[in-house]
């Protein structure tokens, strides 16, 4: 019985984190992006600096009519948002937050192969966007879907290679294990890998500057063109959950997770701080850089990121063996 309660409790905690963190990141995007553009962003909702803007947005989305276009492939169209959202929820299950006041590691479930599990979940999440592009029965969605597919295939490889480099250095595929093995000099030794991982992660999430599949100026909204209301909200939530997962993974793999002063007690706090910092970087990249053209997106992956990732693996091999 205690086991069941424990499992339930963990699930509830993961779902709660899943519901809260993306909203925090979303709000940060609203405000940080606004100030980077000399605006103030939402100010009204909730009273204090528009803190409840995303809650208000959610309420609005719920009220909207759910529409399926006549030309759409109904089943695929309706299933796509769930396929986009659920994998990130699963991914969060395996991401460790670190020691919690000496009570052991705060994590949904410590997997022996946590790294592969999270990467696999992230790659499945993109399938949802692809389904949206296929099922909408809309040319813009279709072209967007093709771009999603091309982008996913290009960036999956450097991402996995970069992650493999850290796993090699740590000698384990468990996320907890990798963060425990982490040493400060990895910040330098694994820097190219970190950049490759982060950039490939941005591309996999279709975040600007890699949002050629969505490209509102040319493709309206790409695969999300026909979506509205609750389904669109699920895609949005998936995007922000994706940012959280990417930031958490970058933190655990490259920034030492909960490493920091008093990490035995407040390790989880260090992880959260680092996750937020990386999420801020994701937002910053969105504001600072213009969108890459479709051919630039692919040539960046194959001509820059893959060679750098391979070089990083070679370097790590030398360091591990030596």
């Amino acid at each position: 019985m205690a086991e069941v309660i424990d499992a339930l409790l963990r699930c509830v905690a993961v779902v709660a984190v899943f519901m809260v963190f993306p909203l925090v990141v979303g709000q940060m995007e609203h405000k940080a992006m606004a100030h980077m553009q000399s605006r103030v962003g939402p100010m009204k909702a909730g009273g204090f600096h528009g803190w409840a803007q995303l809650v208000a947005d959610g309420v609005k989305f719920v009220q909207k009519e759910s529409i399926v276009p006549t030309a759409a492939d109904r089943k695929v169209f309706e299933l796509a948002p769930a396929v986009a959202l659920v994998p990130y929820l699963l991914a969060m299950l395996a991401i460790p937050l670190g020691p919690f006041f000496g009570q052991g590691n705060l994590i949904g479930q410590d997997l022996d192969l946590g790294l592969f599990f999270v990467l696999a979940a992230m790659s499945v999440g993109v399938l949802g966007t692809l389904m949206g592009g296929l099922g909408s029965g809309n040319k813009y969605s279709y072209i967007g879907g093709m771009r999603v597919a091309a982008q996913l295939m290009s960036y999956e490889l450097p991402m996995v290679l970069a992650a493999a480099s850290v796993a090699m250095a740590a000698g384990t595929l468990s996320l907890v294990g990798i963060a425990n093995e982490w040493e400060p000099w990895w910040l330098v030794a694994q820097l190219p890998g970190m950049v490759v991982f982060f950039v490939a992660g941005l591309a996999e999430l279709q975040r600007p500057p890699f949002d050629a599949p969505l490209a509102d100026a040319e493709l309206v909204m790409g695969p999300l063109t026909e979506y509205g209301g609750m389904r669109f909200a699920m895609f949005l939530l998936a995007e922000y959950a994706g940012i959280v997962v990417l930031a958490a993974l970058t933190t655990v793999l490259y920034l030492g997770g909960w490493a920091g002063p008093f990490s035995d007690d407040i390790g989880w706090l260090w992880t959260l701080v680092k996750v937020m910092a990386v999420s801020f970087l994701v937002i910053w990249a969105r504001v600072a850089y213009p969108r890459l053209r479709e051919d630039q997106v692919n040539s960046l992956a194959w001509k820059v990121l893959v060679p750098v990732a391979l070089a990083q693996i070679t370097l790590t091999t030398v360091l591990v063996v030596a």
Partner: peptide, 10 residues
């Protein structure tokens, strides 16, 4: 973008 972030918005 960082400079804008540190300045007051217009």
């Amino acid at each position: 973008t960082w400079r804008n972030l540190t300045r007051r918005s217009v």
